[in-house]
């Protein structure tokens, strides 16, 4: 019991530390990748090839003046960035990031906790993220922020349905909602082979859910200045930032777990495999951002409701039929 307690606390600290660090360094990665795509060098001054840049950015944001607009709803204004960042971090607690290891005679699963309804837990938490944006947009009492918040609310809610539906195929094949079971069900073949459509839908819907280009309508700097976080500064802004990048990490981890066989892989240690796969997915997200223009609000809605949702439903039906035909 005590061993379980200590090992869990250690896992929590390590995982959260790594997620926050990864979110910070993801900003550097994003800038470096963007620079690569755009014929630039990216950050080069702070540290070797800009390795200290995220730390410098953090310090800078920490010392910026913290402005709360006079007409803003103070309590909600402060609460919103916190709502944005917490769910992203908590989601990671159910994701298995390595094969179980044996320490001092005990078997320790490399997962903070294996909830038997892991996927539901993830879906519940990712939908909480939308509140951070909507509340922030509303509480700022600014027109740009309000428009950004409203757009994001509509967008996130409509894409969440496709997101959830795209996972159902995986659940049907694995026969379990627990992420540990889903990973072990992929020991021979990754689910991306059985569920290519589900994978693509998840990839697209999660991009929309994270508010990233080409679905970054909530921010849309060309239109709404900075969208829902127009009025935010200093650490509150940094919280949104961390939340956004932590979400990228978490979503990539979910894709890895559900479709890419989780931590499984030959030769290398399981944790390394997990990290490699997560970063491969992250790179795809980054690649999107620096290639595509932004969608328009109505097109985004059409695409979500008229294309992604029917496709996700069809995917479930086809999966069901095939499973019946194969007699599983």
């Amino acid at each position: 019991m005590i061993f379980w307690l200590i090992s869990t606390i250690i896992k929590i600290i390590v995982v959260f530390g790594i997620i926050l660090l990864a979110a910070a360094y993801l900003t550097l990665l994003e800038r470096k990748i963007a620079a690569r795509i755009q014929n630039r060098l990216g950050p080069m001054e702070a540290g070797f090839h800009g390795l200290l840049q995220p730390i410098a950015d953090g310090i800078k944001l920490f010392f910026k003046e913290d402005i709360i607009p006079a007409e803003a709803n103070k309590a909600l204004f402060i609460l919103a960035p916190i709502i944005a960042v917490i769910p992203a971090l908590v989601t990671f607690s159910v994701i298995p990031f390595g094969a179980p290891v044996k320490i001092l005679g005990h078997i320790v699963p490399l997962q903070i906790t294996d909830v038997n309804i892991g996927i539901l837990f993830i879906l519940a938490l990712t939908s909480l993220g939308v509140y951070g944006v909507v509340v922030g947009g509303w509480a700022s009492n600014s027109k740009y922020a309000l428009l950004g918040g409203l757009r994001t609310a509509a967008q996130m809610i409509s894409y969440e349905i496709s997101l959830a539906l795209s996972i159902i195929g995986v659940i049907m094949i694995a026969g379990s909602l627990s992420l540990a079971n889903i990973v072990s069900a992929q020991s021979h073949i990754w689910f991306i082979v059985f569920q290519p459509a589900g994978f693509l839908i998840y990839l697209i819907a999660s991009t929309a859910e994270m508010n990233r280009v080409p679905f970054d309508l909530g921010e849309a700097e060309g239109e709404l200045v900075a969208g829902f976080h127009t009025e935010y500064s200093s650490m509150k802004f940094a919280f949104y930032f961390i939340g956004e990048y932590a979400q990228i990490v978490v979503n990539s981890a979910i894709i890895t777990t559900l479709f890419l066989g989780g931590w499984q892989g030959p030769f290398l240690p399981s944790v390394i495999w997990f990290i490699i796969k997560v970063f491969a997915v992250i790179l795809v997200y980054l690649w999107f951002r620096w290639t595509y223009p932004r969608l328009r609000y109505d097109e985004l809605m059409h695409f979500g409701w008229k294309f992604l949702l029917p496709l996700a439903l069809a995917n479930i039906i086809v999966t069901g039929f095939v499973m019946i035909l194969l007699g599983k």
């Binding site: 963007a34 755009q38 014929n39 280009v213 060309g222 595509y292």
Partner: peptide
Amino acid sequence: LGALTEFLY
């Protein structure tokens, strides 16, 4: 329109 890369090209 959100296509940031074109600018640098």
